[in-house]
């Protein structure tokens, strides 16, 4: 069967199955199990209403538990076992092996570098664009153009930027715009930007910053619009200059949003895989944790160490996880 037809059948079965499940399970609940008539009508309605939420929730909860909650536990278990020994428990052997690998420390330190640079730069650029476009006529167009990279896949973005970083031999016409600019401003030899240890990390980060700035801009722009007009007007009346208005009046009021943007991008950074995979594949000292983990899992087939690396990513995410959950609970109350 052609996959496209298979896809269509899946949509029909999937959607039909879902609707059918919800429809018939509700009918069974209302008509068969707890019919709302006879002597126990009132009691039955109450009982049906106790069960119903779980009918609505069941498929989602099952999928969430199986596809996200269970893997966390299972990965933890795998990280403590060895596949070659038939999954025997080996304690922290995988972790100690990982800690003895130079590539791991390279990945970890690069990840910290990414965590330091990408959320900061994206937020700053996002804030800058949000503020600058706030009151100009073609601001909406400018924003939509800067937002555009959000729609582009990280693989596509990698190709786009590889062309920017392209290097031709000395003397030839440069086709990568970065080298062309470099030569134009008096650079002597064209640089292969992606193979320059340490600095190449920043060239990879530029790709993610380019993508994430739009996200930061959209959220921060809405936050800036939410700043009460009166506070700004009062500051102007008191003779504040535009910079003072921005840093002393607006910034404090949007601080919580800045934190939200920062943490959201932080999570994206921790998961960054495609860009490194596509552009350098971790060579020339650009390894990051997610790509290191992929290498271990699917190239070296070492599930133990791969899972251990995944747990490190989980560990780095968990402070944000706890913080988010606490905030959500506060909001519920």
């Amino acid at each position: 069967m052609h996959p496209a037809i298979q896809g269509l059948v899946t949509i029909i079965f999937g959607v039909g199955g879902c609707v059918g499940y919800f429809y018939f399970s509700n009918i069974v609940l209302d008509k068969v199990l707890f019919p709302a008539r006879g002597v126990h009508a009132g009691r039955n309605i109450n009982r049906a209403n106790l069960v119903r939420p779980w009918l609505f929730l069941f498929p989602a909860l099952a999928a969430l538990s199986l596809y996200l909650a269970y893997p966390v536990v299972e990965t933890l278990r795998l990280s403590l076992t060895d596949r070659k020994l038939d999954g025997a428990f080996v304690g922290f052997a995988n972790y100690s092996q990982m800690f003895s690998e130079e590539k791991f420390w390279e990945a970890l330190s690069n990840n910290f570098l990414w965590l330091l640079v990408v959320p900061a730069m994206s937020t700053i650029f996002g804030l800058l664009v949000a503020q600058l476009t706030d009151r100009i006529k073609w601001g909406a167009l400018a924003k939509s153009l800067i937002f555009m990279p959000m729609a582009i896949s990280m693989v596509g973005a990698s190709v786009i930027w590889k062309l920017v970083y392209d290097a031709r031999p000395e003397g030839a016409d440069q086709i990568g715009i970065l080298n062309a600019v470099y030569i134009f401003f008096g650079g002597d030899t064209p640089q292969t930007w992606l193979t320059m240890p340490f600095w190449n990390n920043f060239f990879l980060m530029a790709v993610l910053i380019w993508i994430q700035t739009g996200f930061a801009m959209v959220i921060l722009s809405a936050a800036l619009r939410g700043v009460p007009e009166e506070t700004v007007e009062a500051a102007i009346v008191d003779g504040a200059n535009p910079f003072q208005i921005f840093f002393k009046i607006k910034m404090p009021q949007i601080m919580t949003t800045v934190v939200v943007v920062w943490t959201t991008i932080t999570i994206t950074v921790l998961k960054v895989f495609d860009i490194v995979f596509a552009m350098t594949n971790g060579q020339w000292e650009t390894q990051v944790l997610a790509n290191y983990m992929y290498d271990k899992l699917f190239r070296a087939s070492d599930w133990g160490v791969g899972s251990a690396a995944a747990m490190i990513i989980m560990l780095m995410v968990s402070p944000i996880l706890v913080w988010n959950v606490r905030n959500a609970r506060k909001e519920m109350r």
Binding site: Y67, A310, I313, A328, R329, M332
Partner: peptide, 21 residues
């Protein structure tokens, strides 16, 4: 409330963890 918190928590779980299991 607990379920909502559960969902919010899962929001940030890296899918890297889910690959092998």
């Amino acid at each position: 409330a607990l379920l909502v918190a559960f969902v919010v928590g899962l929001l940030v779980v890296p899918l890297q963890l889910a690959l092998i299991p």
